[in-house]
Amino acid sequence: MTGFRRPRALRPGDRVAVVSGSSPADQANLEAGLRAMEHVGLKPDVFASAREMGVDYDYLAGDDRLRAADLTAALADPAYAGLFLACGGYGMQRTLELLDWSRIDPARPKVVVGYSDVTALLEAIAVKLGWVSLFGPMVACNGFHQGPGRFDFDTLMTLLFTPAEVGGLTFLDARTIVPGVAEGVTLGGTATLLAASIGTDTSLPARGGILFLEDVDEKLFRLDRIITQLRRSTYTDGVAAILLGTFTDCGEPREVERLLVDRLSDLGVPVLAGADIGHGIAQQTYPIGVRARLDTGTGTLTFLEPVLSS
């Protein structure tokens, strides 16, 4: 896991694509998010999937072919400096089945931002194209649509426009599960999606990496099953370190942490919990595909290379 291609930083006036690869977007939030993007100088083009409501299923933004065609076009068109996902939900795994990677030039990386169900796309981009991407706020959900002045929006925009100012992430409420310092390439995302991708041609195993995990709306026993699947599948073999974010509505927090300690502390690598990345919070943006150092003593993730090129 070396040599990921870095997209260039965004600039005022850049055209960017807004696409739904999963569930329908809240249209009021989407409009607010578009205004926030325009406020910082971006020129968003809204693809049809971002406007689609459920057709065959109420949890999917249009049909699979539409979502895949929109994603393919947005990733392939050199006119776009970036791709922002409108929202998560469910459906990206279906979309990836039809995405036409042959149309996308790996040598022309562009910024891709999303989280939750978009984890599957970020993994696929790393495997198929070798691009750095960003596990971060989406246009029509969380705080993005609240725009400037909101922590998650502001920190994302700082990273996108002035990446040299972002040398890493500090986690003020971090808790050391297993002490230590380790270096590796950042990867991971929403645990459910990582487990669902195992056995596909877009899964990115954690060997040599700093693995980030978070999740939402999973009962404790299901979260146990997901983490156990990551272990039994050999996905976690050779991992360098583990960073744990939010596990929103996954059970009583002390019980969730007890489970994570039980399932992850015997891997023999540093483990840090309490990162403000994930669902239900004003989150920091976590890059995928960047060499970094995790220090559980200081509660920091230091980037050993720029996230984006200037």
Rank of each mutant, 00 (worst) to 15 (best):
F4T: 10
F4R: 08
R6N: 13
R6K: 15
A9V: 04
P12W: 02
D14S: 12
V16P: 11
V18Q: 02
V18T: 04
S20M: 07
S20P: 05
G21S: 09
S22C: 10
D26I: 05
D26F: 04
Q27V: 08
N29F: 07
L30C: 14
L30M: 11
A32C: 07
L34M: 03
A36E: 02
H39F: 13
P44N: 07
F47S: 08
F47A: 14
R51Y: 10
A61L: 01
D64A: 13
L66H: 03
A68M: 02
A69L: 01
A69Q: 03
D70P: 02
D70A: 03
L71M: 14
A73V: 01
A74L: 01
A74Y: 00
A76N: 11
A76E: 12
D77S: 14
P78R: 10
A81N: 07
G89Y: 00
Y90V: 15
G91F: 00
M92F: 12
M92D: 11
Q93D: 15
R103Q: 12
D105P: 01
P109H: 08
V111N: 03
V111D: 07
G114T: 06
V118N: 12
T119M: 03
E123H: 00
E123N: 13
K128S: 12
V132T: 14
V132H: 07
F135A: 10
P137N: 13
A140M: 04
F144M: 01
F144H: 06
H145A: 15
Q146H: 13
G147W: 00
G147T: 02
G149R: 02
G149V: 00
G149I: 00
G149T: 01
F151D: 05
T155W: 08
L156R: 03
L159N: 06
E165T: 09
E165R: 08
V166K: 04
L169S: 08
D173F: 09
A174Y: 05
T176C: 13
P179M: 06
P179K: 06
P179V: 01
G180N: 09
V181Q: 07
T186S: 12
L187T: 15
L193T: 11
A195E: 02
S197L: 09
I198Q: 05
I198A: 07
T202N: 07
S203I: 03
L204A: 15
R207Q: 13
G208R: 08
G209F: 02
G209R: 05
F212L: 15
L213I: 10
D215M: 10
F221W: 11
R222C: 10
D224F: 14
I226G: 15
I227H: 11
T228C: 09
R231K: 10
R231N: 08
R232Q: 07
S233N: 02
A241T: 12
A241L: 10
I242P: 11
L243G: 15
L243T: 12
T246I: 00
T246A: 06
T246S: 10
D249Y: 02
D249P: 05
R254M: 10
R254Y: 08
E255N: 12
E257V: 04
E257D: 13
E257S: 06
R258F: 14
L260Q: 07
D266L: 09
A273K: 00
D276G: 06
D276C: 10
H279M: 05
G280W: 01
G280E: 09
Q283G: 15
Q283N: 13
T285W: 14
I288K: 02
G289C: 08
R291D: 14
G297D: 05
T298S: 15
G299T: 05
F303G: 12
E305T: 04
V307Y: 05
V307S: 08
S309Y: 03
S310R: 06
